[in-house]
Amino acid sequence: MNDVIAELVKRMKTGDGEAFDSLYGIYVKKLYSAAYLISGSRADSEDIVQETFVKCFLKKDTIRDEGAFESWIFRIMVRTAWRYIKRRPKDSSFDEMLEQGEERYGGPWIQTDRGTLQPLEEVILKEEQEQLREAVSSLEVKQRTVIVLYYYNELSVRDIARITGSREGTVKSRLHKGRENLRAYLSKGSSETKRRQEYEMV
């Protein structure tokens, strides 16, 4: 696959429009999803991805290593996403993600070992999902970015460092803090849920 992509990038650099379209087909989903997780806004994500691919084509001559195309295009996407986020009121669009999550997933996201859940369990799971969404949105944008790139896109610390323009140590630190903040946020939420569970069980 890497050879295929490197070959497509080489062809794109000569101005081959078909090669560009092929690369679009390969990367659009993962770039869009990452943009969505980072920005929390569907509308912004479409703009971010559009801008990313436009820049990809217009700056194709600056690609030095065809084999590193993925981190190159992710770098463009992340920088563009940060610019979009900077321009709007702080995390306002994460309200959209919270609402969309509820609309798309009328029920619980999480598959459980049993096919059906008791009403109380449904309520608990739905609350936990909301908590996760809120927790992700509560992260500072660069922590959120590394969490998304590491866990969702499964990129290496080294690649993430290149993409975000930071050192590997900084990436690790942001990952650690991001996890800690998520845990702290969710623990706070879980204490309230726990109290309710205990009350219900008594």
Partner: peptide, 23 residues
């Protein structure tokens, strides 16, 4: 965490038509 992020992302996937329009 990985699983949940994937589900979160899935909540707003582009359709094939949307992908074509975006291109």
């Amino acid at each position: 965490l990985q699983k949940e992020l994937r589900k979160l992302a899935e909540s707003s996937r582009l359709t094939q038509k949307e992908e074509k329009e975006l291109l």
